[in-house]
Structure formats: structure tokens, C-alpha cells
Simulated assay, not measured.
Amino acid sequence: MSKKVLPVALSNRHIHLCQEDIEKLFGVGHELTKVKDLSQPGQYACEEKVDLVGPKNIIKGVRVLGPARPKTQVEISIADGFILGLKPPVRDSGDIAGSPEFKIVGPKGEVEMEEGIIAAARHIHMHTSDAEAFGVVDKQRVKIRTGGERAITFENVLVRAHETYALEMHIDVDEGNAAGLKNGEMVELITE
């Protein structure tokens, strides 16, 4: 049986904003400015950046990703949490309930957030045809084995299968560095 391999991408800290918060931070009627497309269809990095303010410190210049979302969500690493003085829960994207309070500062205003900052759980985006080829289904948890000098096996990796997704595993920079991974390297999906 051949190995099931896919590329990995290391996700740096970033923010997804709802339109209401875009306008509070950048001005009424502001539209996000696309800089470059990301690997997932329809997603893009924006010119806009904001500062995150925690009880202990500030992280400046956090990249906004587009398009606008229904709810504002910040994705940081555990190490970023130490800098800010926060303990971001490890969660699947969109699961922000009960996450720490923080503040977002933009050039035209700021937003006090009661929740919305997480350390994104490791996950795999894949097209439904990839899921079929890999023998997995949406929301299944799998393992991922890396190679090289710092080879490790990631457990509890969420499969997110949808007809609009492109095949790629997402982990944060902390996890990628611990495994000695770089963007685009191939990893092996394991179902047991």
C-alpha cells in the first residue's frame, strides 16, 4: 500500500475580521486590500495589519486575512500567548466561546474583544475527492507523521473536507519549528 502524503503549511499569527470590526479599525466603508492569494481558494493575505493588546504586552503588525468573516477571530501560537500574557485555548477554527479577552488596535480605532483569540488546532484542508482518495471523512481525526532529523507524529489532526478546499495540513509556527518543518514539505497521513 502506498503512503498517503500531503504538503504542510506553517501558519503564523493572523486575524480574520468581521465587516463591523474592519470599519471600526480602518474606517467606515473600508474594504480589505488583497496583497496575495493564499493556498486555500478564495482566501488571501491583506495589506492591512493590526496590533494585539494583551494584559502583559502588545504584538504589533498582525496580518489581516480576507475575506471578511461573520465573526472576528485571532489565531496565535502558544508562544504568542506568553508574550501577550494570555492563555489561548487550542481550538478548531470558529470555536472561540470562552477564549480570553484582548484588544485590537487599528489606524482608525480599536475594538475591545470579550473573546476571539485561539491557538488553532492542527488540521488538514482537503477537497472531497482527496478525502475519498485518502479514505477519510470530514471531521475525522487522524495522525500525521513527519520525516527528517526531528521527525514526530502529530495526533488528533482534524480533517476538514469540502469541495472548495485545497489539500494542505495547517500547523502553527511553534509546531512546525518543533518538527523541523518548512512550508511545502510532505508529511504522511496515517489512519489506524
Rank of each mutant, 00 (worst) to 15 (best):
E155R: 11
K87C: 10
A119I: 11
G98P: 01
M186G: 08
K182C: 13
K108R: 12
G148T: 01
D130A: 11
K143L: 09
A161P: 04
I144E: 04
V159T: 12
T128M: 15
R63N: 06
A133L: 10
E155T: 15
E112W: 00
D95P: 00
K108W: 03
D172A: 10
H123E: 08
H170P: 05
M126P: 06
V159L: 05
H123M: 09
V90S: 14
E115A: 08
G109L: 05
G147C: 03
K108V: 11
L181A: 03
V64Q: 06
K87I: 15
G81E: 04
E163W: 08
I144F: 02
E114G: 08
K182M: 14
V173A: 13
Q73C: 08
S77T: 11
G81C: 06
R150C: 00
L181P: 02
H123R: 10
K143Y: 04
P70N: 15
I152L: 14
E132S: 13
A68N: 12
E114R: 13
A161N: 06
D130N: 12
A79M: 08
R145G: 04
G85V: 02
R69T: 06
S77C: 05
E168D: 12
A119D: 10
L86E: 06
G148E: 04
V157S: 04
G176N: 03
R150T: 06
V173M: 15
V74A: 12
E101L: 13
E175H: 06
I152N: 00
G148P: 02
L86D: 04
G176C: 02
P107D: 06
I171K: 10
E114Q: 14
H170K: 02
R150G: 00
I104F: 13
L181F: 03
H170Q: 05
E101T: 14
F154K: 08
V111H: 07
T153V: 09
V157F: 06
M169A: 15
V90D: 10
K182R: 14
S93K: 07
A161R: 08
V90P: 11
S77E: 05
I117N: 09
T164W: 08
I96H: 10
S93A: 11
T153Y: 00
I117L: 13
H170I: 07
A133F: 00
R145D: 05
A79P: 00
I144K: 07
F154C: 09
L84F: 03
S93N: 07
I104Y: 12
A97G: 10
V90C: 12
R63M: 10
I171S: 10
A119S: 15
T146L: 01
Q73F: 09
E149G: 09
I83A: 11
V90W: 11
A178K: 12
L167N: 05
V90G: 11
A133H: 00
I152F: 01
M126W: 03
G135S: 01
L86Q: 03
G98L: 03
G61T: 11
K60G: 05
I124S: 00
L65K: 03
L86N: 02
A131K: 06
L158G: 08
E114K: 15
G66W: 07
F134E: 13
E112G: 02
R91W: 01
R145I: 07
G85M: 02
F82D: 15
I152K: 13
V64E: 08
G109T: 01
R160I: 07
I83L: 14
V136K: 02
I104M: 15
I118A: 12
G184F: 08
G147W: 00
E75D: 10
D95R: 03
F102E: 00
